[in-house]
Design a protein around this nucleic acid. Structure first.
Length: 490
RNA sequence: CGGGGUGUAGCGUAGCCCGGUAUCGCGCCACAUUUGGGAUGUGGAGGUCGUAGGUUCGAAUCCUGCCACCCCGACCA
């Protein structure tokens, strides 16, 4: 029997599913395409929420909440938006059930809604409908609001964390007096996401803009961060949209400027979802389970006592108590796993599966020698160290682990980032090691679509730091003045 | 929504072709011995075989419908 995770060489999808399930993060629910996020998985999401929320507040945003249901008519007000989301909406048509007389519960046809309600796939429409009443003057701007919510997108195919029918996310919706200010906001929030991904999740990302084809429905410009998974596929980890005046026009949101002119408001929206969990899992995990970066881990240090007698246990308890206090002063979260129902080896394996960065094992032998066994999850190495100064050592080690996990992912990406200058080369890399492929493209949606049809690769983004460079499109040979990034994506 | 596959105990499965109410492993419970890398022994509990019909004396097994899940595609945060 395999005690770890299915080898990823066999089937990456299976590996990922095993990992999610065995690490006790989530499972499929009884509802089509939905998932149950289990306590340990949710604890990780809560960490993400807490850290992001703090950043949102620091950048001047406030949280609010808007309804789950959106009248159907709201959707049709922005043409591109409705077209983008129409095929994946859950629709509420009735508001009551009844007993049909035979004891069967059926939908009461008399309780048909005058206007159907859409379960939000995203909230631009209902929020802009609300903003109309909030905005009259330039003095009312900007409005910088975020909401933490669930949304529903009736996807054809689902996958735990990566693409579930219902998912948790945050969506920021801001309103500005000028175009420049809105663009600045769009870029600012992209930076917030990128910094979060890199500094907290330890997942290096590429900041870029989407092509017209990949743009958010209703946006003038979509910025994104793109991460690379260990199987060489890319994952869009967050987006920030410059919506121009599209929604203001659709919902008639105008303000009087300083100059006394009536103008439409400029908008942005930006979001990250529980998909970040998927990114985290696929970017760092190994066959022993999850690998959590210390800054994100709900439990940073787990302490496992090894004892035979109650006396030994009592002695270890005293030591652990003191260590725990010292760690807590340093804001390090600790779990003392003193269950007497499991053996140490079992606990080691279990906490590795859950990705806890640092493990301290302490037994009678250590108590005599004044040592502990200190193990790190990222490298799977362990050493015997002195009890003295342990809290400080652990603090240092956590920093090292955070840095090491990031470096490892960064190195992986560097070795899976290839510049190509011909279509043959392009296909060769794509079918071989995968990863990001930097090449010239003629700028047309047609070419983009044909490359996708032939190779499954899509343009992930036009990197923000791209250099102007003369070249020719690898597909059509037409002139191009900058490279874009292609990859197969989740 | 198209193609393929699978539904049997909490999990993983055998049995299905060739009909006679179910196999094995893990897990679970009890006791004992154990405890520095997923313990061992003995005993025990747990199943409307996805679901609804049909055929039959009798269905996990054959037939039909439905549902769910997984994989590939299209779609997508």
């Amino acid at each position: 029997m395999s005690k770890g995770i299915t080898s990823r060489a066999e089937d990456y999808s299976q590996w990922y599913n095993d990992l999610v399930i065995k690490a006790d993060l989530a499972e499929n629910s009884a509802v089509r395409g939905c998932m149950v996020i289990k306590p340990y998985g949710y604890a990780i999401w809560e960490r993400m929420q807490a850290i992001l929320d703090k950043r949102f507040k620091e950048t001047g945003h406030s949280n609010a909440y808007f309804p789950l249901f959106i009248p159907k008519s709201f959707f049709s007000k922005e043409a591109a938006h409705v077209e983008g989301f129409a095929t994946e909406c859950a629709v509420v048509t009735h508001y009551r059930l009844k007993n049909d007389g035979t004891g069967k519960i059926v939908v009461d046809e008399d309780a048909k809604l005058e206007e159907e309600l859409i379960v939000r796939p995203t909230s631009e429409t209902i929020i802009w409908n609300t903003y109309r009443g909030w905005i009259e003057s330039y003095r009312d701007l900007p409005i910088l609001v975020n909401q933490w919510a669930n949304v529903v997108r009736w996807e054809m195919r689902t996958r735990l964390f990566l693409r579930t029918a219902e998912f948790l996310w945050q969506e920021g919706h801001t309103a500005h007096a000028t175009k420049e200010e809105a663009i600045e906001e769009t870029e600012r929030m992209l930076d917030v996401y990128a910094e979060f991904a890199e500094n907290i999740l330890a997942v290096p990302v590429i900041r870029g803009r989407k092509t017209e084809n990949e743009r958010f429905a209703g946006a003038l410009d979509t910025y994104c961060i793109e991460a690379l998974m260990q199987d060489g596929k890319a994952l869009q980890a967050g987006t920030s949209h410059f919506l121009g005046q599209n929604f203001a026009k659709a919902f008639d949101v105008k303000f009087t400027s300083k100059e006394g002119k009536l103008e439409h408001v400029w908008a942005t929206s930006w979001g990250v979802s529980t998909r970040l969990m998927g990114a985290l899992i696929m970017a760092h995990s190994d066959d022993q389970g999850l690998v959590l970066p210390p800054k994100l881990a709900p439990i940073q240090v787990v302490i496992v006592p090894i004892f035979k007698t109650e006396e030994e246990k009592a002695q270890i308890d005293v030591f652990v108590d003191q260590l725990t206090n010292e760690l807590k002063i340093k804001n390090i979260s600790v779990k003392y796993d003193d269950r007497d129902t499991q053996r140490p080896g079992f606990k080691f394996a279990e906490w590795e599966l859950k990705g806890v960065p640092v493990r301290v094992a302490v037994g009678a032998r250590d108590m005599q020698n004044g040592t502990v066994e200190l193990a790190r999850r990222d490298t799977q190495t362990k050493e015997t160290v002195a009890q003295e100064g342990l809290a400080g050592n652990i603090e240092q080690l956590l920093h090292e682990i955070q840095e090491n996990i990031y470096q490892k992912a960064l190195n992986f990406r560097a070795s899976h980032f290839t510049e190509v200058n011909s279509y043959d080369e392009f296909k060769e890399v794509l079918e071989g090691k995968g990863g990001f492929i930097s090449c010239h493209w003629d700028g047309t949606t047609e070419t983009e679509k044909r490359v996708k049809e032939e190779t499954k690769a899509t343009i992930r983004c036009i990197p923000l730091d791209v250099k102007e460079e003369q070249g020719v499109c690898i597909f059509t040979g037409k002139p191009s003045n900058r490279r874009v990034l292609f990859a197969k994506a989740y």
